[in-house]
Design a protein around this nucleic acid. Sequence first.
DNA 1: TTTCTGACAACAA
DNA 2: ATTGTTGCCAGAA
Length: 108
Amino acid sequence: MKKMDFFLKVYDVVKKVPYGRVTTYGAIANYLGSRKSARTVGWAMNSSHQNSDIPAHRVLNRNGVLTGKHHFSGTNLMKQLLENEGLRVVDDKLVNFNKYFWDPSTEL
DNA sequence: TTTCTGACAACAA
DNA sequence: ATTGTTGCCAGAA
């Protein structure tokens, strides 16, 4: 296993998130083996911005809140992307989050 | 090299 | 229920 194994796994999982679905940092971290590495998942996303085609807008925190929206190009780009996939966002939070939640541990 | 921080989340008090 | 601390990994100072 290489050093950046964690990053690669994160990328891989995020890229497999189906259209119109979302997942969380914790879910990915848990799938990778450690639920506490959720932070690192977010870090991977930050890095992914300049590396690959990662749908980072589909990754939210456990509350379904667009925590990382501020890191996107615009202020509401992340929100727009989600709405573009048929989702609904109110007050930087995904509506029916539980319904759209895609857990790699369960569905992959 | 040591220390701090960061798109989070769980546990303790 | 709310607040504070701890764990995880990688990068910057």
